[in-house]
């Protein structure tokens, strides 16, 4: 198998493009969620933009917003379903991605999803879970999804400070046999403090030629009530109970 030559300049420009898009106009009503994909074998460069512009989106009845779509690159195909949900108590970002390497060489991919929420609480619990799979789309051989250099396969964070790495290097997931699937799952959590400016998922990996990978990453930050708030809740509960007994 011929190893690809990675063009990091291309990937860096993808990240830059994503940053520049931040200030761009968005579709009316759609939350600001940016998406970027770059592949080492794609001479046309990275693709990045607002998910509301790249595909379809809808405000769902439960208050969340969902984005779906697909893009064909020169040597890859990606389809996505991304759901964001923000309330006073929690913020979730859920991204389901399928990536097909349509070239005859293995390729390195870098994908990023970035959600800029409304300003949100200062303290909370940040939980990350990611399920991944790889499928061999051939009658022979294997399919391999693996880490690149020292980058974790899945990264998730809140702004620049709170970052969780899953599937740290060196990691490889291998499916053997015709149309065989290999899968794995990992999760982690941490407490965070400070205002949440953005919630993001990133993935960097190498995928064997002609094969398909899925990445399903779910992050949630839920508020941890401050001691003062807990005291107020306790008092309110005590008053309610007292009233109930008096009636």
């Amino acid at each position: 198998m011929t190893k690809p030559r990675y063009d990091y300049t291309c990937l860096s420009s993808g990240i830059l493009a994503m940053t520049l898009v931040t200030g761009a106009a968005v579709s009316a009503g759609a939350p600001e969620v940016m998406f970027s994909i770059a592949a080492s074998g794609d001479g046309s460069g990275p693709v990045s933009g607002m998910l509301s512009d790249l595909g379809a989106w809808a405000e769902l009845d439960d208050g969340s917003t969902a984005f779906t779509g697909n893009i064909f690159g020169e040597s890859w195909h990606v389809s996505w379903t991304t759901v964001v949900h923000q309330t006073n108590e929690l913020l979730t970002l859920d991204s389901a991605l399928s990536i097909t390497n349509t070239s005859n060489q293995s390729q390195m991919f870098e994908l990023d999803t970035l959600f800029n929420p409304d300003p949100i609480f200062a303290d909370g619990l940040f939980e990350v879970a990611a399920n991944i799979s790889v499928m061999n789309l051939d009658f022979t051989g294997t399919a391999e999804l693996s880490t690149v250099d020292d980058a974790a396969l899945i990264r998730a964070g809140l702004g620049e400070d709170a970052v969780v790495d899953l599937y740290e290097p060196f990691y490889a997931l291998i499916a053997t046999g015709p149309y065989a699937i290999a899968l794995d799952n990992q999760s982690d959590q941490m407490t965070v403090s400070g205002d949440v400016e953005s919630s993001w998922h990133g993935s960097t990996f190498e995928l064997s030629s002609g094969d398909l990978a899925t990445l399903h990453t779910y992050t949630v930050i839920s508020a941890i009530p401050s001691p003062g708030a807990i005291a107020l809740l306790a008092i309110a509960g005590w008053i309610n109970r007292r009233r109930a007994f008096q009636l």
Binding site: A56, W57, A58, A66, W80, S98, T102
Partner: peptide, 18 residues
């Protein structure tokens, strides 16, 4: 490769088939 998406207010679906 075939790919299609449906977006409604109560559900979304995305399918990719090879």
């Amino acid at each position: 490769l075939w790919s299609g998406q449906i977006t409604q207010n109560d559900f979304t679906t995305s399918g990719t088939f090879i």
